[in-house]
Design a protein around this nucleic acid. Sequence first.
DNA 1: CCGACGTACTGTATCGATATAGAAGGACTG
DNA 2: CAGTCCTTCTATATCGATACAGTACGTCGG
Lengths: 355, 355
Amino acid sequence: MPATLQTIADELGVSRSTVSNAYSRPDQLSPELRSRILAAAERLGYSGPNPTARSLRRGKVNAIGVLLTDNLSMAFTDPYAVAYLRGLAEAASARETSLLLLNLPKDEEAGRRVVGNAAVDAFCLYCVPDWHGALDLIRARGVPIVIGEDPDAFGPDAGYVGIDERAAARRLGEHIARLGHRQIAIVAHWIVDGGVTGPVDADPDALRYYVTGQRVRGFRDALVAAGVPWDRVLLINAADNARDEGGAAAAHALDRLDRATAILTTSDVLALGVLDALGARGLRPGRDVSVTGFDDIDEAEPAGLTTIRQPSVERGRLAGEILLDPPEDPARRRLTLPVSLVVRATTGPNTKELA
Amino acid sequence: MPATLQTIADELGVSRSTVSNAYSRPDQLSPELRSRILAAAERLGYSGPNPTARSLRRGKVNAIGVLLTDNLSMAFTDPYAVAYLRGLAEAASARETSLLLLNLPKDEEAGRRVVGNAAVDAFCLYCVPDWHGALDLIRARGVPIVIGEDPDAFGPDAGYVGIDERAAARRLGEHIARLGHRQIAIVAHWIVDGGVTGPVDADPDALRYYVTGQRVRGFRDALVAAGVPWDRVLLINAADNARDEGGAAAAHALDRLDRATAILTTSDVLALGVLDALGARGLRPGRDVSVTGFDDIDEAEPAGLTTIRQPSVERGRLAGEILLDPPEDPARRRLTLPVSLVVRATTGPNTKELA
DNA sequence: CCGACGTACTGTATCGATATAGAAGGACTG
DNA sequence: CAGTCCTTCTATATCGATACAGTACGTCGG
């Protein structure tokens, strides 16, 4: 019923190819005929080549798939993720490519349907639970991939733009240890899934979520090297990477007799929540309790948060460029970016008597 | 080269249709054959039906196009837009539909290419410069549309989920007038385009951007009704809906002899910037200068901002539902949602002597 | 005047799937 | 045993475009 190339062709008595050329290769026909064709299209309500058909024929859709977790509020709410997405979007739109946001449902089957139905030229994986079964399907689809977390999750062919998570976390741990803290809690998201916020007894070498695993291991590296027995470190799960979860998690470290003198977190967002919890209890950050974040989001500086600064917009932009203009040199498709330790006011020397 | 349905069919000596059915209509073949097919697919590296081909044949792509302005940082940065997107994403993902984020370049031709190449089932227009030429193309494409701003921009067939912008703004204006303010500035974004932040001399009845136009007219309605001569109101353009632009715009109202005693803004984000500017000058919000926002984003409450509360997540969700499950009753496809005036601490009685 | 070349257009195969009608064979019914 | 129905699979047309080879015709150099 709606007009197609053929409709226009019939109307003017020219071939379908010519009408197609009028849109896609204007140099292939006379300007005069071209304008007659466009006029006829206008008249018949034809709005140009069907994007799906064109994509099928050309084998290209001009879209990058971005996987988001079930809880997509995070992608839009977490300042770090937002910055990353912005960089990605910039790189994409510079190449007239769009972003297809895929919400990956928890349910395995549904997840495979979503991924399987996604018409994209490439996938960008970031902040995705790396154990999800739908990831196998992505692998199988054989389209280019860039990942931001576990560099080995998709083999050497996948692009990678990330940081050395473990070494970065280690620097925070060393900073805290050097300040003399021995009573330490770690607030980390997705240590276990299931949505519980609270202390957990987990083996750092067996965490499923790569980023948290590496960061917790980095903390441990530093603390153990500084002589803090690992079994005295309180490990607290945050159900999500959200400010209020950070506050709820912190309560478990603060409301007990052997209160922690330092709380290491796996993200600035969680750390801000921890600071909220301190404030609610009249505790002074950096004096009574030291707190560290991770990412150095915009809000970190006004909050005086000690943290690890890592590129955000840049990281997204690089991911997009690797997908859309893959560098010849394979080494340039796998980037480990530098980070830096930013010391601010939320960390200070341990003032509590050592046990 | 990559495997297709036909590859699998040939391998097993069955018809292509049967292989297709194995994926899309499992009840159409024996479980035994189906598992042989899936096994063969696995073996040959076939990852399921090509999404583009499927979309072409089915005439459905399971995606909603979301237009974003050139400056897409806004979509990801403006808290109100983020909340709206989240609602939209929730509605979409509940129906296994994805969001295709389209970045609309300023350039007319490029914009038409982006829109024309977008494989989507529907469009959701929000925060889009409504004069952009690519919008005609969207109209012409004949897919369902939901808009969030000018209810008349796309005719009566388009869905609409919005608020009565003008009446809402009027309530803010009345509030300010009732407090006795007479020296008033308005900080509004996109009064004129071109990226200048500063006072402008513009006719409220001739603004191109619908939302700003309505809100400014609403302010005028209230002020004029209260006896404030319109030509004494200072109209200041903000180049973008961003916090720092709000601060920069406010400077023009504060750093002059006849300093405004009240500043009305078109968004909370701008208002927060205005508050920053007050703070930088040692002026007390609600005492020295009253400030109002619009939207009631999360940050408004802690800032004590007087504002208009409008639904955000809900508004996005409703838009998604109208697109994906259009109500039979046309009236339910055009929703004007209620708003409320939230009075907080940033507004107070005018303490300055009247001129 | 012939061959080479350029311009403007056409015809056909193809991209990879799904819908629909229909065929083959077995089971069940009366 | 004929007729009906169900299950299981097949054949063909189709979705709407683009790539590529090819045709027709005019021009130009020698």
